Computed example of a mutant assay.
Amino acid sequence: MTDSHKHPDAQLRLVIFDVDGTLSDSQADIIGSMTDAFVAEELTVPRPDEILGIVGLSLEVAMPLLAPEVPDETLDRLIAAYKAAYMQRRLDAGAGHSPLYPGMRELVEALSAEPETLLGIATGKSRRGLVALLETYQLSRAFQTIQVADDHPSKPNPSMILAALAETGVAPEHAVMIGDTQFDIDMAKAAGIRTIAVSWGYHPTTKLAHADLLVDDAAALRKAIDTLT
């Protein structure tokens, strides 16, 4: 449900954020939880760069990439162990869990205050994990559309973006996706919307060259959003 009927003269725009590696820095928890899961199964732990390379994918897609030789029942246990370890780390860390990147809270708050701007999330996180993160930083009310791994095929399938466009009623040419991985950019391009890559996340910028714009900080991101929408 949007506020579009309140602003008949304004051209609505939709700004969609990825979460891990874009809004918040959860790499320590991701690597640690994946390590716990593999150790529990007595499997060789993937390298940190391998683990960060799958961030953005749903676990059901990511885990076979990290453990291609193991049977399905082991993959199921790895996924369950990862989820349990991640939740425990979140509970143990409390308010310090997955800190937001510099300037991102202020950017989200500024954008959410604009009548013509709707905000969305498209993430490989579970709904439970995302809700906990947004509540920690008191950002739950900032987003009009939230798309999570529970409800969609994994990125780079465009399903999350298409659902966000449908829920908000914003035309693709007035929407932009912000992410730190190749999967985010590919997903957005498959849905026909513009893309902004951030350099502070989990994929090297060499994998992000096909984004419309690449930015290095929150101030540059704000300018890029205004440029593209």
Rank of each mutant, 00 (worst) to 15 (best):
K6L: 15
Q11I: 14
D18P: 10
D18I: 14
G21W: 06
G21D: 07
T22S: 14
D25T: 11
D25W: 06
S26V: 07
S26Q: 10
S26H: 05
A28W: 06
D29W: 02
I31M: 00
S33L: 15
T35W: 12
D36C: 15
F38Y: 04
V39D: 15
T44Y: 05
P46V: 13
R47H: 09
G53P: 00
V55A: 01
S58Y: 01
A62W: 10
P64C: 02
A67K: 02
V70F: 06
T74C: 11
A81G: 06
A81Y: 07
K83W: 12
M87I: 11
Q88N: 09
G94T: 08
L111K: 02
G120V: 03
I121L: 13
T123S: 13
G124H: 00
G129F: 08
L134F: 04
L139K: 00
S140L: 03
Q144D: 11
T145D: 05
Q147Y: 02
A149Y: 02
D151L: 14
P156G: 07
P172F: 11
M177T: 03
I178F: 05
D180S: 09
D184P: 07
K189C: 12
R194T: 04
I196R: 12
V198I: 07
S199P: 14
W200F: 10
P204S: 13
K207V: 13
L208V: 05
H210K: 15
A219C: 11
A220T: 06
L228H: 04
